[in-house]
Computed example of a mutant assay.
Amino acid sequence: MERRFRVAIVGCPNVGKSVLFGHLTGRYAVVSNYPGTTVEIARGTGWWDGFTFEVVDTPGLYSLSCVTDEEKAARALLMSEPVDWLVHVVDGKNLDRMLPLTFQLVEAGFPVLVVVNMLDEVRAAGLEVDVGALSERLGLPVVGAVLTRGAGVLEIKAFLSRAARSAGRPGRSLAGPGREPVEPRGESAGPGRRPVGPEQPCGPPRGPLRPAYDRRTERAVAVLTTLLGPHAGDSRRLSRRALALLCLQEDPDTLDLLRSERPNQWPEMARVVTESNRGPHPVRHRIPLALHHLAREVASA
């Protein structure tokens, strides 16, 4: 049976997700509403390097703690459908606003390729993004791109081909920066940037960068992950830690989900959530603050 490699493109609105989807799938696309919603999801198939790639273009997603219908549909898709790799497209001019979602996706347990798009606009604004240094700081593979010109597409395809070739466990062999981050072909390196190739090593692989929360938050996460049990993420495709963090942020859909799926543990879960969010500095505020603080540190380094 043919092995189909599943890729989901995620990111905020207007960062170039649909442009990348077009480059990867060409005319082979089907647009339909996500079940139970009026939110459109684009699905397509790409063929290159002898592999078949099923690609989905998710609606705009700012955070896994969702507010809009589009965000809820994107998260529901990630929670319900198997995905081999997430391609997180970000606006290179606004990394500090984009990276909190990157950290959430990592905490959720997804293998993530970061595509820093709009590098032409970055340079026009007199800014620089060193994708090599960014990859080392994040502990994730990073590709620089100007997707409207097609720059970076070959490198993205090459990365996904290597992932598809990696013994059926794509999230293991390529998730860290053991592969060199890639500048888009045809783009000059410029000062402070280094031209790199997709097959060159960039140092020993390590795990991706994760946020460090305060003790109160980490204690609450530890209790909730224990209550969730070892198989909590099996059917929902999010890690126990991600579910715990969403629960502590009082995400309504997550609370409803755990109330129905963990009825025996729910009273204690509800107590932990309530206790953690009492006082002038509730955990539901501390979690996004920690994500944005880390994003600013990484973006400004």
Rank of each mutant, 00 (worst) to 15 (best):
S161Q: 13
T148I: 13
L105T: 00
E136P: 13
L160P: 15
Y34G: 10
D96S: 09
V112H: 07
A270V: 03
A212Q: 13
P198I: 00
T37S: 01
V146M: 12
A164S: 12
Q249N: 06
V143T: 07
E297Q: 14
L238H: 04
R165H: 15
A212K: 12
H293Y: 09
T52P: 15
L160W: 11
L255T: 13
E40R: 14
R4E: 14
L113K: 02
D84T: 02
E107A: 06
V55F: 12
T58R: 01
A145V: 00
P35Y: 11
R286T: 15
D256R: 13
N277A: 09
E199G: 14
L255I: 14
E180I: 10
I287M: 05
S300M: 09
F159R: 13
L147A: 14
Y62K: 01
A8C: 08
I41W: 02
A242R: 11
F53A: 02
L105N: 02
D120H: 03
L24P: 12
V106W: 02
V129H: 00
S173E: 15
G203D: 08
V90I: 07
Q200M: 07
L119K: 03
V10D: 04
L294W: 09
E71D: 02
P211G: 13
L257I: 03
L258D: 07
P59S: 05
R165W: 11
E70R: 01
H88C: 01
Y34M: 02
N33K: 14
A158E: 13
G60R: 07
A295C: 09
R284L: 10
A76G: 03
L95D: 01
G171R: 15
S63Q: 04
R179L: 15
L140I: 05
E2G: 12
V129M: 00
S32M: 10
A29Q: 13
L228R: 04
G197H: 11
P181N: 11
L154Y: 10
A76H: 05
N14C: 05
V131R: 00
R262E: 09
M79T: 00
A158W: 10
L78G: 01
R284A: 08
V89M: 01
L64A: 06
R284G: 06
S276Y: 05
G11N: 08
P82T: 01
P170W: 12
G126A: 06
C66Q: 05
P170M: 13
E187Y: 12
V143H: 05
P282R: 01
D256C: 10
S235Y: 09
P252N: 04
L127I: 12
P208D: 11
R123P: 00
C12T: 04
R206A: 11
T45E: 08
V30M: 10
P252K: 05
E128S: 09
